[in-house]
Amino acid sequence: MHHDHSPAGIWAQGDYELGEGARWVDGRLVFVDILTGRLFEAPGSAPSSGPARELLRLDVPLGAVAPVQGRPGHWIAAAGTGIALLDPDGRTEWLARPEDHTRVHTRMNDGVCDPHGRFWAGSMAYDATPGAGSLYRTDPDGSVHRVLDGLTIVNGPAFTADGSTMYVADSAAGVIHRCTLDRAGDVLEKAEFALLTNGGSPDGMTVDTDGRLWTAIWGRGTVHRYEPDGTLTATVRLPVPQPTSVCLLPTGGSLLVTTARHGLTGDHGLSGAVLSVPTDAAAPPAAAYTMH
């Protein structure tokens, strides 16, 4: 296993409380600041020292978005207590709000589309009540299905290129699960893929073009790269303690990492900025939601 000490640069300046959901969409980086409900874009060229541009703002937390196929500027989002379609002005059309009637106060968290155009998103309790988190799948017809429950803080998921394998993190438990899916998107088998024992929490993740899983490790200031068999083969060290999500460019060259200053006091350095680390790895752009 090698430790990568190449210096982290700044891709997008900012003081984001809970930056998350880094995705490569239409040649640029988009990401969210969850608790303020904001979606941002950052230039797709070389890192700019400037701030990112706000695309829209909701009055509920915004966990993550995915583009909608054939509808530029429209998004499907994990937001508030459910799944919504967003137009370029931030108007919401709710598909479902499954977290409205939970036993504890919960919100949607991370989300991403699989290669088949379905949107997957997880939830968590605000106070991280164990077992209060679920994973949902939104099908092209707009129906929302609970696929997994009994998790605590659901992050990811990430998918292999053929969509048959899904990785999903339960951050609070320090576990990454590997799930085999059938064609309908139901879980055939769930197994423990990786377990963090040093106190770090696996957060946002992506699968590169070689099938390796990259995941931000909240609390440890690192990004881990795992082989498909679960072997940890690289650890990227970052100058901040709370990386939240990772994005690899389709052309390679940069690993982009959102970070959070949530809970940090005093001078928190680069925490809250979007960082860039040189890498030779690449990943496809974010998959889009296919509406029927």
Rank of each mutant, 00 (worst) to 15 (best):
241 P>N: 08
2 H>V: 15
47 P>D: 03
19 G>T: 08
162 D>N: 04
256 L>R: 03
285 P>I: 12
87 D>L: 13
162 D>S: 04
214 W>R: 05
120 W>Y: 07
263 G>C: 08
252 G>H: 10
141 D>I: 00
220 R>W: 07
188 L>I: 13
87 D>V: 15
152 T>N: 01
98 P>Q: 10
146 R>S: 02
260 A>H: 06
275 L>E: 06
86 L>R: 03
167 Y>Q: 05
247 C>Y: 00
197 T>M: 08
189 E>G: 09
283 A>D: 07
213 L>S: 07
60 V>F: 03
91 R>T: 13
258 T>L: 02
230 G>W: 05
205 M>W: 05
7 P>K: 14
65 V>A: 02
252 G>D: 15
63 G>E: 02
290 T>D: 12
181 L>V: 09
8 A>Q: 14
292 H>E: 15
187 V>R: 06
151 L>I: 01
260 A>V: 05
48 S>G: 07
227 E>W: 07
156 G>P: 02
185 G>I: 10
200 G>I: 06
287 A>W: 09
11 W>P: 13
39 L>R: 02
188 L>S: 12
90 G>T: 15
287 A>F: 15
192 E>Y: 12
184 A>V: 11
16 Y>N: 12
13 Q>D: 15
211 G>W: 07
249 L>Y: 05
106 T>I: 04
65 V>M: 04
229 D>H: 07
39 L>F: 01
236 V>R: 07
219 G>P: 08
155 N>P: 02
200 G>Q: 08
59 D>L: 00
286 A>S: 12
137 R>F: 00
85 L>H: 13
144 V>T: 05
50 G>W: 00
264 L>C: 08
60 V>T: 04
69 Q>H: 14
54 E>I: 00
83 I>Y: 07
27 G>T: 10
248 L>A: 07
219 G>T: 11
289 Y>W: 15
51 P>G: 15
265 T>K: 10
72 P>Q: 07
288 A>W: 03
212 R>L: 10
16 Y>L: 14
250 P>H: 05
197 T>N: 10
96 A>L: 08
135 L>G: 01
233 T>Y: 04
115 P>V: 11
130 P>S: 01
98 P>I: 03
70 G>R: 04
198 N>E: 14
37 G>H: 01
17 E>T: 13
24 W>Y: 14
187 V>M: 11
22 A>G: 12
217 I>H: 08
273 A>F: 05
142 G>H: 02
168 V>R: 02
135 L>C: 03
185 G>D: 13
23 R>G: 07
165 T>N: 05
71 R>L: 13
248 L>T: 06
292 H>C: 11
225 R>L: 13
169 A>Q: 01
40 F>S: 02
216 A>Y: 06
273 A>I: 06
181 L>T: 05
174 G>N: 12
188 L>R: 14
